[in-house]
Amino acid sequence: MTPTYYLLLSALLFSLGAVGVLVRRNAIVVFMCVELMLNAVNLSLVTFARINGELDGQVMAFFVMVVAAAEVVVGLAIIMAIFKTRRSASVDDSNLLKY
């Protein structure tokens, strides 16, 4: 077994997250799928750090976490704001911007 397996796991998790974004309709769940994709990337970053013997990959993963935290805060606030006005958290309901 080599660390490549971690990368494969990361790829699978990323794909699952991507599919989730496409399939799920609840905005919060979609958001969680995005988080899953970020996590998958983090896993590969950590693995690369290990493969290369440098800590930079871990630092990158750390930054990803910070950015993800900021993103989640703003994103959820937006979802809440939308929910307040539209009483719905479905991404399909916010489809006024079309045609």
């Binding site: 490549t4 991507a18 599919v19 496409l22 399939v23 290990r50 493969i51 800590l55």
Partner: peptide, 28 residues
Amino acid sequence: ATVLGIGFAGLVVGALGRALTDVTPVGL
């Protein structure tokens, strides 16, 4: 979405499998 997701996973896994078979990790 399913087809694309499987396709994406296949592509990445295939690429990783070909690219990283002989990697020797340095370790931390």
